[in-house]
Design a protein around this nucleic acid. Structure first.
Lengths: 249, 249
DNA sequence: TGGTCGACTTGATGCAGGTCAATCAACGTT
DNA sequence: AACGTTGATTGACCTGCATCAAGTCGACCA
């Protein structure tokens, strides 16, 4: 696996400037010197195999991670309940923001496929942020963006139909792929039906059925984990669809 | 800015040291000088009447607010959908974290009853945070706490029964009241059934029915908006209750 | 004193989607 | 080739809760 010699020597430590995610990653907007200081605190990237855990719930919180390639899921285990999948992380997204200021990681994060992540020791990041207002801003922005994402998710889970949830989910993925330069129409689902179901608060059979229905309506074409969005328009219609729970007050 | 001259006069500008929320508020852990600098950026507290809006969705984002007394709700309006209540804010909680880094406020916040809030212009807060690591830390911590809270909410909305949602909701409120020095057993719901229903992703009739059932089981006593938790144990049992959606994989 | 409004409760009904169960396809593994 | 395993699909059934609808209880006003 790679030539990867010493510890943090050259081949491993990434040059952010060259990274394809440059435009969507944490150090976005940093000056050149700042960028170099930033690069200096990045640990050698970790390679993860499918199913391998990046962080385990309850471990002491020490690092943030940025996904370079591949994808991961976060899930939290609650007392007597089944686990809940809370996030899927795609390249450029930051893992661990929800543990800042806590002693321990509050969810487990595992790779859904082979993945690389950049490791950022949080204390060093914090020190650096002390000197770099831009970096601070980026951190705030990331967290606040995640807050908004979670709220959108809450809206989704709160009284949307299975169709709406799936449609939104697919559109959301599509959008994220587009933003990263991949095709927004045709992609591979790295997560299982069961992960999707859990994430969306549905039974996995329902996910299967709804996808099948979408398919026979000609909205999507799905074969296993290969997904093609044929008719974005109508997907958006499905996602909106003002039925749901009774009106206002 | 010590003896506090002109600007917007004395009675308003709060002394954090004397504030009863001191121990749970943003400036927690600041040194005395730091605290004074912090106080200096607080605008004169706003008084809100029931139903009055503190921020409106889409307005330019400029301030964070800390609730001093009373309570508020945040709701976001989406395209063709009914509004979704995303938060209830109690004294000591910070309004607006989810808009940081955005141009506009992404939800409306209105008072559920007479309320006071401290206004913190965000740019000044940011400048101050540049010099006060403690304050920075507090900001991070607040945001990250909110992230965790949202995630807990997502878990709640994702495949918990109406009973579990209500039970968790009541316990959550109870906990927050306790933390603020109020009775955790007996409190007034400042929000309507419809707000609760919307927040929990239920129909308001369901809320009504479940509360009635809890009452006849002797778990709570509820009369209009006066709520008494009679049997916390059994509420916790209800909140846990491992039924829900099918198990793991 | 009655009228109207808003917040809440209660009853009856139907359906979306959860649950149980069987089957199948794609893999390794031996 | 036979086997187990894991993920996905599909069918049949049943229940929790949304929905529709009516009724109650104040509070406020004329």
């Amino acid at each position: 696996m790679k030539p990867q010699p010493a510890r943090r020597s050259s081949p491993g430590v990434p040059r952010c400037e060259r990274c394809t995610l440059h435009a969507r990653c944490l150090p976005l907007g940093l000056e050149l010197d700042a960028l170099h200081s930033f690069e200096a605190i990045i640990q050698v990237p970790q390679a993860l195999k499918r199913g391998q855990a990046l962080v385990r719930q309850g471990e002491p919180f020490e690092n943030l991670y940025v996904v370079r390639s591949g994808s991961l899921k976060q899930s939290v285990a609650q007392p007597g309940q089944r686990d809940q999948v809370t996030h899927f992380y795609l390249p450029g997204e930051v893992v661990g923001l929800d543990a800042i200021g806590e002693a321990e990681c509050h969810g487990s994060v595992v790779a859904l496929e082979s993945a690389f992540v950049c490791e950022l020791p949080f204390t060093r990041l914090e020190d650096l942020a002390e000197q770099l207002p831009e970096l601070r801003g980026q951190l705030y922005r990331c967290m606040s963006r995640e807050l908004r994402r979670d709220q959108r998710m809450m809206c989704l889970l709160s009284g949307r139909t299975a169709d709406q949830r799936l449609a939104s989910f697919l559109l959301g993925l599509s959008e994220r792929f587009r933003a990263r330069g991949f095709s927004p129409f045709c992609f591979r689902l790295s997560m299982s039906r069961s992960d999707i179901a859990n994430y969306l608060g549905l039974a996995l059979e329902t996910v299967s059925r709804v996808l099948a229905r979408f398919q026979e309506q000609g909205t999507i074409a799905v074969a296993g984990r290969e997904m093609t969005l044929l008719d974005i328009e109508s997907l958006e219609g499905l996602a909106r669809e003002g039925v749901g729970l009774r009106g206002v007050n």
